[in-house]
């Protein structure tokens, strides 16, 4: 079954001269970890915001587990870890988890149980009562991921989940993602780290200038970075 099916969507921001996504299509099978690679400004974050219902497309269709988005039930099956650290700095980790759990419609008892589980999963149990504004970069990233995992999503959308973290935290996150995938969670991973994509993902999609320029099996690509540069070009993307 397809966990995520995106069919020829086009999205343009107000007053933008070019559309952020143009006739974009993507398909992610249930149980896969799929990498989404692309230069800065390619449209990866926009795509994630469309899938999570933050942006509405005028044409095309997005379906999660067969249900056309936006759909409240399907939103509950998605876990989203955005690229910015989207946490409340003046709350503790546990308070953040409780708040987001309530937003996800979870019962208090369930939140407590799951909070302990995700804190353990992300190695933050001993810091659960510390204010988030005292956390290091790696801890923030792990808590950002923990919030996304709290409500046991079937589909996990990760937008550069290891940016700015040390190798130890990065390795911890990789292990967490691998375990989650083994337990049946489907993951769409947006990243600029080629090694990360090759290590974790079975499929890859290349996005450039709002278009899907390649989709295929990861194991058929020898050197991902070289392949990426061949497909997207070597020119700087500063705009």
């Amino acid at each position: 079954m397809k966990a995520l099916e995106i069919s020829t969507i086009t999205f343009c921001y107000d007053k933008a001269t070019e559309c952020a996504l143009q006739s974009f299509s993507l398909s992610v099978e249930e149980g896969q970890i799929q990498a989404m690679l692309g230069p800065n400004g390619a449209g990866k974050t926009t795509l994630m915001r469309i899938i999570t219902g933050q942006l509405m497309v005028k044409s095309g269709e997005v379906a999660v587990y067969g249900r056309r988005m936006p759909d409240q039930t399907s939103l509950g099956s998605i876990g989203y870890a955005p690229q910015p650290i989207s946490l409340y700095p003046t709350l503790t980790a546990r308070e953040n988890l409780k708040f987001f759990g309530t937003m996800a419609g979870m019962a208090d008892g369930k939140i407590g149980e799951r909070a302990e589980a995700v804190l353990a999963e992300t190695g933050l149990v001993s810091y659960a009562l510390k204010y988030v504004n005292t956390y290091s970069g790696g801890m923030l990233r792990r808590l950002n991921l923990a919030v996304a995992l709290l409500h046991e999503p079937k589909l996990l959308l990760l937008d550069e989940p290891t940016v700015g973290v040390d190798p130890q935290s990065r390795n911890h996150i990789y292990q967490t993602l691998a375990r989650l995938n083994e337990s049946g969670v489907t993951i769409l991973l947006s990243t600029h780290i080629m090694e990360e994509a090759q290590r974790l993902c079975s499929r890859v999609t290349l996005v450039d200038q709002g278009k899907d320029i390649f989709s295929g099996e990861m194991n058929k690509i020898d050197n991902l970075e070289k392949f990426f540069l061949e497909k997207t070009g070597r020119g700087l993307r500063d705009e």
């Binding site: 999570t52 933050q54 939103l75 509950g76 955005p82 989207s86 987001f100």
Partner: peptide, 8 residues
């Protein structure tokens, strides 16, 4: 924005 990704 994260809050808007929840079914609420």
């Amino acid at each position: 924005q994260r809050l808007f990704t929840y079914p609420i």
